[in-house]
Measured scan of single mutants.
Amino acid sequence: MDVFMKGLSKAKEGVVAAAEKTKQGVAEAAGKTKEGVLYVGSKTKEGVVHGVATVAEKTKEQVTNVGGAVVTGVTAVAQKTVEGAGSIAAATGFVKKDQLGKNEEGAPQEGILEDMPVDPDNEAYEMPSEEGYQDYEPEA
């Protein structure tokens, strides 16, 4: 019985440690998101679009440190934060509304985080759909 109880105690310690790591990862992701939003706020009209992409990228980098179902929630929060940063930029006159959601080359930025393969159960990952990809044929 002692062996059984000791095993359960060790398992509990492992769960607590994993929860603490997840909590730490979420806190880091939130900190990076805040950094990115402050970065966007300090940019001029020309830099705002690039700044919004930076927020998304920093958040995406930190999301990889967070495991399990938390990833889905962090990704949703990050996307809403990026959308909010863009709205703030438009409201303050840093950028025109028609410039939001495009990178410096004018290509749409939507789907940055949505296409990231995420499995809350950590069982399997699927690649994003290939609808947006084109076949590449090298020139002879």
Results as ranks from 00 to 15, higher is better:
3 V>L: 05
3 V>R: 15
3 V>W: 02
3 V>T: 00
4 F>E: 00
4 F>K: 00
4 F>I: 08
4 F>M: 03
5 M>Q: 00
5 M>F: 03
6 K>P: 00
6 K>E: 02
7 G>Q: 09
7 G>N: 15
7 G>Y: 08
9 S>M: 15
9 S>K: 12
9 S>P: 00
9 S>V: 08
10 K>T: 05
12 K>R: 13
13 E>W: 04
14 G>R: 11
14 G>H: 15
16 V>E: 05
16 V>T: 07
17 A>S: 06
19 A>T: 02
20 E>G: 02
21 K>A: 11
22 T>R: 01
22 T>G: 05
23 K>S: 04
27 A>Q: 14
27 A>I: 15
28 E>L: 07
28 E>D: 05
28 E>N: 02
28 E>S: 09
29 A>D: 00
29 A>K: 04
31 G>Y: 13
32 K>Q: 03
32 K>D: 00
33 T>E: 00
34 K>E: 00
34 K>M: 04
36 G>N: 15
36 G>F: 04
37 V>H: 00
37 V>K: 01
37 V>M: 08
39 Y>P: 00
39 Y>H: 06
40 V>A: 05
41 G>H: 12
42 S>I: 13
42 S>H: 08
43 K>P: 00
43 K>S: 03
45 K>P: 02
46 E>H: 06
47 G>D: 07
49 V>E: 03
51 G>W: 15
51 G>Q: 08
52 V>H: 01
53 A>M: 13
54 T>Y: 13
54 T>I: 15
57 E>Y: 05
58 K>Y: 08
59 T>H: 02
59 T>C: 10
59 T>V: 11
61 E>N: 06
62 Q>Y: 04
63 V>F: 09
64 T>N: 12
64 T>S: 09
64 T>E: 09
65 N>T: 08
66 V>Y: 11
67 G>F: 11
67 G>C: 11
67 G>S: 07
68 G>I: 15
70 V>E: 01
74 V>M: 13
74 V>K: 01
75 T>M: 10
77 V>S: 02
77 V>T: 03
78 A>Q: 03
78 A>M: 14
79 Q>Y: 12
79 Q>F: 05
79 Q>V: 07
80 K>G: 04
81 T>P: 02
81 T>C: 09
82 V>W: 12
83 E>G: 06
83 E>M: 11
89 A>T: 07
89 A>H: 04
89 A>N: 03
90 A>L: 14
92 T>V: 12
95 V>N: 10
95 V>P: 08
95 V>S: 10
96 K>F: 14
96 K>W: 15
99 Q>N: 13
100 L>I: 05
103 N>M: 10
103 N>A: 05
105 E>W: 02
106 G>K: 08
106 G>D: 03
106 G>Y: 12
107 A>I: 03
108 P>Y: 10
109 Q>A: 02
110 E>S: 06
110 E>D: 12
113 L>I: 12
113 L>F: 09
114 E>G: 10
114 E>S: 11
115 D>S: 05
117 P>C: 10
117 P>G: 12
117 P>M: 07
120 P>N: 07
120 P>S: 10
121 D>S: 11
121 D>F: 12
124 A>S: 09
124 A>T: 02
124 A>W: 10
125 Y>D: 09
125 Y>I: 14
125 Y>L: 08
127 M>F: 11
127 M>E: 15
128 P>Y: 03
129 S>H: 06
129 S>M: 09
129 S>D: 10
130 E>W: 10
130 E>V: 14
131 E>D: 13
131 E>R: 07
132 G>R: 13
133 Y>D: 10
135 D>I: 10
136 Y>R: 06
136 Y>W: 12
136 Y>A: 07
137 E>M: 05
137 E>F: 11
137 E>C: 07
138 P>F: 07
140 A>E: 09
140 A>Q: 06
